[in-house]
Write a protein that binds this DNA or RNA. Sequence first.
DNA 1: CAGTGTGAAAGTCTTCACAGCT
DNA 2: AGCTGTGAAGACTTTCACACTG
Lengths: 206, 206
Amino acid sequence: MSSKSVPDIVVARLPLYLRALSAMQTSGKVFTSSQEMASWLGISSAQIRKDLSHFGEFGKQGTGYSVTSLQDTLRSILKIEREWPIVIIGAGHIGSAVANYSGFAHRGFRVCAVFDSAPGKIGLRIGQHIVQDIAYLPKVVQDYGVKLAMIAVPADAAQAVTDLAVAAGILAVLNYAPINVIVPDTVRIENIDPVLHLQHMTYYLA
Amino acid sequence: MSSKSVPDIVVARLPLYLRALSAMQTSGKVFTSSQEMASWLGISSAQIRKDLSHFGEFGKQGTGYSVTSLQDTLRSILKIEREWPIVIIGAGHIGSAVANYSGFAHRGFRVCAVFDSAPGKIGLRIGQHIVQDIAYLPKVVQDYGVKLAMIAVPADAAQAVTDLAVAAGILAVLNYAPINVIVPDTVRIENIDPVLHLQHMTYYLA
DNA sequence: CAGTGTGAAAGTCTTCACAGCT
DNA sequence: AGCTGTGAAGACTTTCACACTG
């Protein structure tokens, strides 16, 4: 059933399902089942069925799910049938790596500009892009209708740069700086900090 | 109470608390309270107190927590009073960025080697490191007692490379490849895939 | 008969609210 | 007065187990 607010944790798993389905398609599968996806992902089949049931009925009893049509369905639920432009702020090691990353292209995103504030960085070529002065951020965001930004600046600049992005009209932020950035609650933010993962795992090491 | 298996989700938040405490220390704070940390992190103060209570009693009523000693406590719970060596496998854009990242140093980790299998990459200098042939991975893992590996190779190589790492004695893996890698259940794995975060956020965009 | 979709049960996690300490 | 630590309540999430379908 499709209305009445799906739990966020369910939404968070859909991209994972989509990623598994892509891999299945690559390996030539035409149909799959909740149990096959489950064993692939290391979760329970009931969870997959329950998650999908929040959005509708996409499977055939006895047969399972069509790999391509479930992909299409998930893409449309996640609003990535379209291609979203993203800006990257920060042209250091991480920003450069992300700007060069080829994995956005077929998953719903396209890097449309890279910004930095350091005179030494502005004008440099990174992959397809020329690093622009961050002063042009608002113009690019407006002109291209950019909603998503990735923040790849040092921790002590992250809040200021995020404030700029939000003021320019950015509505979703993926933050690589190892610090908690505050945004208005009209804006979504998620964080990537590899050290957090490492510290989590060391807890379990003998 | 310190024994009887702390929920994993609680362990996962400790690094976040530690990160907030470091920021507080930088800004000169000596004491803090659960409510201050909570507003800093955007979660509830009860959650912080409850989480910490799994490990002992670290606060003073009326006063709160000593910033430095709570940091020490968390570091010791997470086993990062020591410094863990990490290997990076894959010297492409992501592997290079991670190898150059200066943020590991004071948070419990040190990159001790970078590997690749491409002849064109082996011998290159990346930051402090010379890229080594992956054939030497087992020797390095053994000699330095490395338990942690970061996988930064293309999706289609990730499983094979992870198998190698696990065979060499690696017990915790941080995987940057956008694919689900299977490991024995004696080994921990966590994943970083920026696209998953972006796809999650687009769901909420108008 | 293999496999979905789903209420109901079980399990887990968060919040409340307050006794008690400094 | 201010803030911790914590049982108990409440909210949320996962799993179970089965009627039903192609």
